[in-house]
Every structure is written in structure tokens, then in C-alpha cells.
């Protein structure tokens, strides 16, 4: 499209335009910053809520208790049946002996329990299968799958989730839905404002530089050489807005977020997840800023820059 000298001159002219219209550039950058801050906060809220939801969901599974004295072969065949079910994620088998061992270990300091266990002649704990579904809404189907008559003779009982957990999941899902609806609405409004402000700023720059543009056209500047500086200028709005937002987000990431995350879900290290990765978020913000800037500039160029 153009050589390195032209590219350098386009970038330089973009910077000069940004600097010459400093008050307009500052206004465009501020509006873009507000949009990006809202985006970042909603992004983090969404991440925290999904994280909490994951935490609660991970506590749910179906425990299938088998009748005592049932052969391990039979249980293994039921395990295979379950594993063949596409809604099932994992099935973990715990034999009665292992269950007892684990129970003893868990209560090794409780003399009363240890003594009671020693007095028993038979293992009171059943063999179990812990079934985890791929999706939360799959549990009722897996439950009905296990309620089939062919398993009735082997299964003593089964249980999944308590009512409180289900309620928590329901509430978190509602919050998540609200964040998505409210967030998309809010982001759309501010994105529109940012696009309009940048559109007007670039239009004014085009107007201010109309003489230069006319001469450039006459002496044979390529279309991209004429358009390029306007694009560079608008990308600078996105860039500076990202830098400001990144600085504003820094205390949230270094102080606030680790505490919240630990409170919500102590087992999962939140920093392994993209949404809580600082640089990932900054990259996303720059991408959003750049896309909004470029779109508004293209609209302004299309309308007002005659080439």
C-alpha cells in the first residue's frame, strides 16, 4: 500500500493532528475512557459472577449409593452406562471399603466415632458413584436415567444438591442475566456517544485540513496517504483512553480483586482465568477502543473526505 517513509509520515501527521486539536482530542479521549471504564467494570462483574456460579456449581453432583453386598462388577457396568451418557462429564467410583477408610481418616481424632466403628461387625457405608454433569440443567435427566427400573434393584438411594445450593445458583444466574442485559445496554449507549464524538472530532480535523487535503489530492497523494493520518489520530484516542483506563484499573487488580475472588471462591485461583488477567483485559480494552475509533473515522471519512 505504501513504503516505510510514507508510513512514518502518515503516523507523524496523525500525531501532529492530535496535538494541534488538543482540546478536541482530550474530549474524544475522555468519552472513550468513560466507555472503556464501564466496559472494564462490567467485564469484571461478569467474570466475578460467573466465577461464583462456577464455584457453587462445582459443589453439585449426584451421589448414587448402592445396596450393600452388591458386586463391584455390577457397579462398574453401571459406571460404564453412565459414562456412555453424553450429558455426563465424570463418574467417580468409591468402594465401600475405601469410603470407610476415608471416613476413618476424616474422623481420626474423634474417639467416639472411632470406637463406634470398631464395634461394628459390618461396613455401614455403601459403595458410591459420584456423577458430575457437563451442564447444570442436565442433572434432572441424569437423575431420571438412574431411576430406570433396571437399576432399581441395585441402587439404595441417590441425592443431588440441596435446596439452598439450587437457590444460590438460581440467584447467581439471575444476577448474571441482569449484568449481561444491563451491561450490553449501557455499553451500547456509551459506545454510540463515543462514536458520535469521535465522528465530530475527525470531521472538524478534515475541515481544518481541507486545504492540505485538496493539495495532496492534486499533487498525487494516494488515497491511503490522505486518509491514514485521520485513522492514526482516532486510534490515538483509543490508545490514550486505554492507558488511562489501565491506570484506573490497576488498584482494583492489585488490591480489591484478589480479596473479592478469595471470598467468592477460595478453591479456584482467579488469576488463571482470562477475565481476571490484567494484560488480557487491557488488550481487550484497546481492541474495543480501536474498533470504535476506526468505525467512527471511516464514517466521517466516507461522508466528508472527498478523494
Amino acid at each position: 500500500m505504501f513504503d516505510s517513509i510514507s508510513f512514518f509520515r502518515i503516523v507523524k501527521t496523525g500525531f501532529v493532528n492530535f496535538w494541534r486539536n488538543l482540546s478536541l482530542s482530550a474530549a474524544a479521549t475522555m468519552v472513550m475512557t468513560i466507555t472503556l471504564v464501564i466496559f472494564a467494570v462490567l467485564f469484571l462483574l461478569f467474570g466475578l459472577t460467573s466465577n461464583a456460579l462456577d464455584a457453587v456449581q462445582s459443589r453439585i453432583d449426584i451421589s448414587v449409593y448402592f445396596k450393600s453386598g452388591l458386586g463391584e462388577d455390577k457397579i462398574k457396568s453401571i459406571q460404564l452406562d453412565l459414562e456412555a451418557n453424553e450429558k455426563v462429564d465424570t463418574v467417580v467410583y468409591t468402594s465401600a471399603t475405601k469410603a470407610l477408610e476415608e471416613f476413618r481418616k476424616k474422623h481420626e481424632n474423634d474417639f467416639l466415632i472411632q470406637q463406634s466403628l470398631n464395634e461394628l461387625t459390618e461396613n455401614p457405608l455403601p459403595a458410591t458413584l459420584n456423577v458430575r454433569a457437563k451442564n447444570l440443567e442436565d442433572y434432572p435427566q441424569i437423575d431420571s436415567f438412574l431411576s430406570d427400573r433396571k437399576y432399581a434393584d441395585f441402587i439404595e438411594s441417590k441425592s443431588y444438591g440441596d435446596d439452598q445450593t439450587k437457590l444460590a445458583i438460581e440467584r447467581l444466574n439471575k444476577i448474571l442475566g441482569f449484568i449481561i442485559t444491563f451491561g450490553v445496554g449501557l455499553i451500547s449507549i456509551f459506545a454510540l456517544i463515543a462514536v458520535l464524538v469521535i465522528f465530530n472530532t475527525i470531521t472538524l480535523t478534515i475541515f481544518n485540513r481541507r486545504e492540505e487535503v485538496e493539495i495532496m489530492r492534486l499533487v498525487g497523494a494516494t488515497n491511503w496517504y490522505i486518509r491514514g493520518p485521520f485513522l492514526v489520530e482516532s486510534i490515538l484516542y483509543g490508545f490514550f483512553a486505554t492507558v488511562i483506563t489501565a491506570l484506573l484499573m490497576l488498584p482494583i487488580f492489585s488490591n480489591f480483586l484478589p480479596r473479592i475472588a478469595l471470598f467468592v471462591n477460595p478453591q479456584v485461583s482467579v488469576f488463571n482465568q482470562n477475565v481476571f488477567n490484567y494484560w488480557y483485559l487491557i488488550f481487550m480494552l484497546f481492541l474495543v477502543g480501536a474498533i470504535l475509533s476506526v468505525v467512527s473515522t471511516f464514517l466521517a471519512i466516507r461522508k466528508y473526505l472527498k478523494i
Binding site: 505504501f2 513504503d3 517513509i5 510514507s6 509520515r9 492540505e212 493539495i215 495532496m216 499533487v219 498525487g220 497523494a221 496517504y225
Partner: peptide
């Protein structure tokens, strides 16, 4: 110089 710059002439 401006006319030459926009057409990619070296400084």
C-alpha cells in the same frame, strides 16, 4: 517539499 513528501520522496 510538502508536495514531494506526500508522494513518497525521501527527505
Amino acid at each position: 517539499a510538502f508536495a514531494m513528501e506526500v508522494c513518497g520522496h525521501r527527505a
